[in-house]
Amino acid sequence: MNIFRLAGDMTHLASVLVLLLKIHTIKSCAGVSLKTQELYAIVFATRYLDIFTSFYSIYNTLMKLIFLGSSFSIVWYMRYHKTVRRTYDREQDTFRHWFLVLPCLLLALLIHEKFTFLEVLWTFSLYLEAVAILPQLVLLQRTRNIDNLTGQYVFLLGGYRGFYILNWIYRYLTEPHFVHWITWIAGLVQTLLYADFFYYYFQSWKNNKKLQLPA
């Protein structure tokens, strides 16, 4: 464990807690893409299958349970909670996210480190996580004005992968044979997808005005 990875995990944890806080306290999920939340639930479900077979540390297992629990409960809130589900803008959140799942699955079947069931699903979860934010970014473009909590959620989510890139550089430099091109490229693509959001987020923060994304 290194400081970059810990910072990344804490930022990731903060992003899901911000979202859960928003949904639980104001009983609203306006501006949140259910599609992205469903993709994240699939990402965690396919990535943490090894929770039953291999144990790394209490921290590792605890965080996996937290991420699984939070992502599935956010999807539950947005789909079934009587008050929250009414605030979900279904008409705007129209990204065909299943078109993201299939290519990621095919790619995982083609490019992976080992051709085993767990490894292919794990690789699939990496590819899917890289693109999972797209429905949310599209929704933010459409709804234009972003409330603070949703903006913070996307910002923290992008930041966590940025910290992970520093972690991979650190591990590459300090651990012999730590080379995982698939993870690195997927993580880099994911972070780049946030680039323009980060740009507008900092612009709004610097000029201290409401975050507006160009149409």
Partner: peptide, 10 residues
């Protein structure tokens, strides 16, 4: 068993 470092991350 030997836990490969690739999957020790979240």
């Amino acid at each position: 068993e030997e836990t490969d470092a690739a999957h020790d991350e979240l």
